[in-house]
């Protein structure tokens, strides 16, 4: 302390100009002080935040985005759009205070501008070299999956979608579901490694008559292994017949009995072979009618999927869920057209 006083004294004695200069230096520092302290907070390790029961208020640091804040506080970067909307800004700047609601609620995804829709992508077969209408080439499939990640889509499980459809939960704004139909081996050999790489959940709809019956189809052993790994396996009927159209020589009674057999046979076989309860049905050829729907309901299915293109708002019919087939000859722009996640409709 005395040293300090001595130095001031020396300063005063030696040069008044130096002393004035020192005062100016202090002044400049003080003038910049508020900013300097804030900058240190912004760039530094410690984030300024205040917690409340329903939200946290934080000061954005250098490099923060709504996506990074959503990841840090909500454990899911795809809530970024929700945070931006809540705060009424498109982007962040360092030092900007932001509100982060801790329970992001967008029940049904309804806003005054419209409502959320969830696309379901339907694939069938995959090939490393060839493309067909129902065969996606491996490279293209990888590009499509990468596109979903890079563009901030969140791939969700079919159960989550049905919770949304039953108004039980909110979904991140850019949610999308991936499904694969039929039960071809290529789903295991080509699609699954790509999906695993990105950590995307997928639902496989199999028709049980094909399983283990063709060298190009999945076997029950393999399906069992996939189920053990957490893959969701659901019904695509027993024989893949068109459920909505009776056969030419089929009486109505036969048609109905066969319909019951298609829906129960698939469900029971999966239960017996894989010890998995089936909840969902993908209609072969995507076609259905009221009788099919009521039969599926009666058997305890929770919902069923068509191949009518379009996303699904929360009020979609559980047994007429839209699904978009991603055809093998799609380019990226055609793929992107099947990813609409919002339907504009002014509610004012």
């Amino acid at each position: 302390m005395s040293d300090c006083r001595g130095r001031v004294r020396t300063l005063k004695v030696k040069s008044p100009c130096l002393f004035i200069g020192a005062c100016l230096f202090i002044l400049v520092n003080l003038l910049a002080g508020g900013r300097a302290v804030l900058s240190a907070e912004v760039a530094g390790m410690e984030r300024r935040e205040r917690s409340f029961p329903d939200f946290i208020a934080v000061v954005a640091r250098e490099g923060d985005t709504f996506s990074s804040l959503a990841l840090e506080y909500l454990k899911d970067p795809t809530w970024d759009g929700f945070l931006a909307e809540f705060n009424g800004v498109d982007s962040l700047r360092p030092g900007q205070p932001v509100i982060i609601p801790l329970k992001p609620e967008r029940k049904g995804g309804v806003t005054l501008r419209g409502y959320q829709t969830v696309p379901i992508l339907a694939y069938h077969n995959f090939s490393s070299t060839q493309t067909g209408k129902l065969t996606a080439r491996q490279a293209m499939f990888e590009e499509q999956m990468r596109f979903l990640r890079e563009e901030g889509y969140r791939v969700i499980a079919l159960d989550q979608l049905f919770d949304f459809l039953e108004f039980k939960g909110s979904l991140p704004p850019k949610s999308v579901v991936i499904t694969i139909d039929d039960g071809w081996l290529s789903a295991y050999e080509i699609a699954l490694p790509v999906l695993k790489k990105y950590g995307y959940p997928v639902t496989l709809f199999v028709y049980t008559d094909i399983i283990g019956k063709s060298p190009r189809a999945l076997s029950w052993d393999l399906l069992g292994k996939m189920a053990e790994e957490g893959l969701d396996i659901q019904c695509h009927t027993k024989s893949h017949r068109n459920l909505a159209v009776p056969g030419e020589k089929e009486s109505f009674k036969d048609y109905f009995e066969n319909l019951v057999g298609e829906l129960s046979g698939c469900k029971e076989t999966i239960k017996k072979r894989l010890n998995r309860e089936v909840k969902y049905l993908a209609y072969p050829y995507g076609t259905t009618n009221s009788l099919v729907i009521e039969t599926a309901k009666k058997m305890g299915y929770r919902g069923a999927l068509t191949v009518i293109r379009g996303g699904n708002p929360f009020f979609s019919h559980n047994f007429r869920v839209n699904r978009s087939e991603i055809l093998g000859d799609f380019n990226m722009s055609q793929f992107e057209r099947n990813l609409a996640v919002f339907q504009e409709q002014s509610l004012r």
């Binding site: 077969n125 090939s127 060839q130 067909g132 209408k133 129902l134 065969t135 039929d182 071809w184 063709s214 190009r216 189809a217 893949h240 017949r241 068109n242 159209v245 056969g247 030419e248 050829y285």
Partner: peptide, 27 residues
């Protein structure tokens, strides 16, 4: 047509699958 395409690509099961679908709709 899908079936024919598969057949030319030597995807014979898939070709049968497509042709069966064709037959189901148009016996």
């Amino acid at each position: 047509i899908n079936g024919v395409r598969f057949f030319t690509q030597e995807e014979i099961e898939l070709a049968i699958y497509e042709w069966e679908a064709a037959l189901a709709l148009e016996p």
